[in-house]
Simulated assay, not measured.
Amino acid sequence: MGRIVKPAEFAKRRDRIMHCSAGRSNDWRKRAMKRLAKEAGTTADKTAGGRVLSWRLRNGQHVCVKHRYPDEQFATTAIDQIQREPDGRRKPIRAYACSFCFGWHITSQPK
């Protein structure tokens, strides 16, 4: 059984694995996330397609896959910054409140 991990610590370590591992393979990321989940004693909440949406910590709190913004203002500021990037990728168009982590996320999907 894993030790109790705070949501912020889990999210920080997850972000480091997912975004700060240049040159690493997807298999490496999957193994690293599996180790982190085991160490923290979390369970993955999955969709019907088998994709992980969030991790449920031992204390019942959730850590979402998406980046968590503390409030709507931070999320809309992030949308504005991302919209200015000329990279040809899909751009987020709105922010929404998350019922799992009680933070805010951004999405490119219309309401």
Results as ranks from 00 to 15, higher is better:
residue 9 E to V: 00
residue 15 D to G: 03
residue 22 A to M: 09
residue 2 G to K: 13
residue 87 D to Y: 01
residue 30 K to H: 12
residue 111 K to F: 04
residue 1 M to E: 15
residue 37 A to V: 02
residue 61 Q to I: 03
residue 34 K to D: 15
residue 6 K to F: 05
residue 33 M to G: 15
residue 56 R to E: 05
residue 36 L to Q: 05
residue 101 C to N: 06
residue 40 A to W: 02
residue 55 W to F: 15
residue 83 Q to W: 01
residue 99 S to C: 11
residue 56 R to A: 13
residue 6 K to M: 13
residue 38 K to F: 11
residue 85 E to A: 13
residue 71 D to H: 07
residue 26 N to A: 12
residue 63 V to A: 01
residue 85 E to R: 07
residue 39 E to N: 12
residue 86 P to K: 00
residue 3 R to K: 14
residue 49 G to Y: 00
residue 7 P to C: 04
residue 16 R to M: 10
residue 23 G to Y: 01
residue 17 I to N: 00
residue 57 L to D: 01
residue 19 H to F: 13
residue 35 R to Y: 06
residue 72 E to Y: 09
residue 3 R to P: 02
residue 21 S to N: 07
residue 54 S to I: 03
residue 81 Q to K: 14
residue 102 F to L: 14
residue 52 V to N: 04
residue 75 A to M: 03
residue 1 M to P: 15
residue 111 K to H: 09
residue 1 M to Y: 09
residue 46 K to W: 08
residue 46 K to C: 07
residue 28 W to V: 05
residue 95 A to M: 10
residue 77 T to E: 12
residue 49 G to P: 04
residue 85 E to L: 10
residue 52 V to S: 02
residue 18 M to S: 00
residue 30 K to C: 01
residue 86 P to F: 04
residue 93 I to P: 14
residue 11 A to L: 02
residue 74 F to P: 08
residue 10 F to D: 07
residue 69 Y to R: 10
residue 75 A to N: 04
residue 38 K to G: 15
residue 83 Q to F: 06
residue 96 Y to F: 10
residue 52 V to E: 06
residue 62 H to Y: 15
residue 90 R to H: 11
residue 30 K to M: 08
residue 97 A to P: 06
residue 39 E to C: 02
residue 26 N to M: 05
residue 13 R to N: 03
residue 85 E to V: 12
residue 14 R to A: 04
residue 79 I to N: 11
residue 19 H to S: 10
residue 13 R to A: 03
residue 7 P to H: 03
residue 64 C to A: 10
residue 96 Y to N: 10
residue 17 I to D: 02
residue 35 R to E: 04
